[in-house]
Write a protein that binds this DNA or RNA. Structure first.
Lengths: 109, 109
DNA sequence: TTAATTACTTTGACAGACAGAGTAATATTT
DNA sequence: AAATATTACTCTGTCTGTCAAAGTAATTAA
């Protein structure tokens, strides 16, 4: 398991990326992250919903209530146009951050 | 300039790496980071000295006072054996984090 | 009926990073 | 010699992101 404070700051990117693919609800996002990372990273519930609140307040995603299938009622989110533009920025930021950190880390692997 | 909370968690790595090369003092580290990143990232003074305190408390680096050349007296740090081992861990952690984030970011660049 | 799973929410705490202000010594300019 | 710039370090208080812990509620399986 990767320490979460090393992934800190990238959660918005990861989550927005998953919303770019399709509308999703919270629990699904958390499952999807565990699945795709092969359990190398798991987002904590409290963190997840805090991210949603932050993104919604900034109008990068918007919520609507979906159908109740298993268990509790699902709250779906969709990414907004603003959110898509922001994700684009985050992606190029990631490219730059990677370059910078590699600058210091390479030659040590 | 890269946002600092996206580099957060990697400062220990960057600084330990610079100490691996040779003993250095604070101001030098800050200059070196700006230089190597071409000013794309600048560590703030308050942050820098907080990192030193953290690393010293964990016995990953140790301090000694050097000669006074220009300006205020310099406090030098050297990396300890423990620090070297820890850096090794951080480097492999970085490789893994990179993989994980790329998992979500690739195909969007 | 009970337990397990799905799904979301809230509160309070903590750690890392930073702004801002301050101290102090040396070097440069006037 | 005095004023200013630069080098160098320290401290306090604040903000933000993440998380632990606890709780609510609905559905499904035992």
């Amino acid at each position: 398991m990767v320490r979460s404070d090393i992934i800190r700051g990238h959660l918005d990117s990861i989550i927005l990326r998953l919303f770019l693919e399709k509308d999703r609800y919270g629990y699904e996002i958390s499952q999807e992250i565990s699945l795709r990372t092969d359990n190398r990273f798991q987002i904590k519930e409290a963190t997840l919903y805090a991210v949603f609140q932050r993104l919604e307040k900034r109008e990068l995603i918007e919520a609507y209530y979906g159908d109740v299938s298993h268990g509790g009622k699902r709250k779906y989110y969709r990414i907004t146009t603003l959110g898509k533009a922001y994700l684009k920025e985050l992606v190029s930021e990631w490219t730059e951050v990677k370059e910078i950190i590699n600058l210091f880390m390479e030659g040590l692997e």
